[in-house]
Computed example of a mutant assay.
Amino acid sequence: MLVELGDFYGGERRKLLVRLAVPGIATLGLATVAEITLTCFATQSLTTYTAALPITVNVVPGNEAAGRIPDPVVRAERLLQDVQDAKRQASDALIEGDVDRAMHLLTSSALTVKEAISWAPNCDELAREAEELGLYAARARSDTNRVSKTMRASWHTSNRKRGRTNE
C-alpha cells in the first residue's frame, strides 16, 4: 500500500497512526509484522532518500497479554481519528437525509470522547471535540445543510493538520 504524506517542512514532525491486522503467530518473542519504507526527495540537492523501518511486536503467552494496558497516547490518537470518521459519516448521512443516523453518530461519538477525557493525555483537545460534536448534534435537525458542510470542513481540516508539529 502506498500512502503519500504530503510536503514536509524544516523542523516539522508527523505522527502516523497505522492499524494492522496481525495474524496469529506461533512462536514467542519479537516478530516483524510489517515494514514501512519512507522515501523522500530533497529538492535542494535533488537527492532521493529511502529508509526502511521494521514494525515488530513482542509475542507473549495469552495470559500475559491479557494483563497489558494499551498505550493511552495511541488510544487517544485512534479515538480522535474515529471522531473525524464519525463527522464524515454524519455529514454523509445528513446529505442523504438520514438525520437520525447522523444524530446517533454524533451523540455516541460525543459520549465516547467525554468518557475518554478522564484517561487521555490530550484531554483539552478531546473536550473541544466533545463540545463541537454536541453543537453539531444540537443544530443537525434544524440546519441540516450547514451542519453537514461545517462537519465536512472540520473533518477535512482536522485530518490535514492531525499529527503535524513544528519544533
Rank of each mutant, 00 (worst) to 15 (best):
I69Q: 09
S91H: 05
S91P: 02
Y49D: 08
G6Y: 01
I36A: 13
L28M: 09
P72T: 13
A66G: 03
F41G: 03
R14C: 08
D71N: 14
E12M: 14
L16I: 15
T39I: 09
R75Q: 06
L80K: 04
V18L: 15
E35K: 11
A42W: 10
I36K: 00
G6F: 01
R13H: 07
R68T: 01
R78L: 15
E64Q: 13
N63H: 04
G67I: 00
L46D: 11
V22L: 02
G11K: 05
Q84H: 03
V73S: 05
V33S: 01
R14H: 12
I36V: 13
I55W: 06
P61I: 05
P72F: 08
E77I: 01
P61R: 10
A76S: 15
L94Y: 07
D71T: 04
N63S: 12
E35Y: 12
K87H: 11
A66P: 07
D92F: 14
I69E: 07
A86S: 15
A34M: 02
P72A: 14
A93C: 02
L16F: 15
Q81C: 10
N63P: 04
G11T: 09
A51E: 10
I55A: 08
E77P: 00
T32L: 03
K15F: 14
K15D: 14
T27Q: 11
A65H: 05
S45W: 01
A65I: 03
E77G: 15
I69H: 02
T27A: 10
A26P: 07
T50H: 00
R68N: 02
Q81N: 15
F41W: 11
Q89N: 06
R78P: 01
R14M: 14
G67K: 07
A31V: 06
V73P: 00
Y9R: 10
E64W: 07
R14P: 00
L94V: 09
D85G: 12
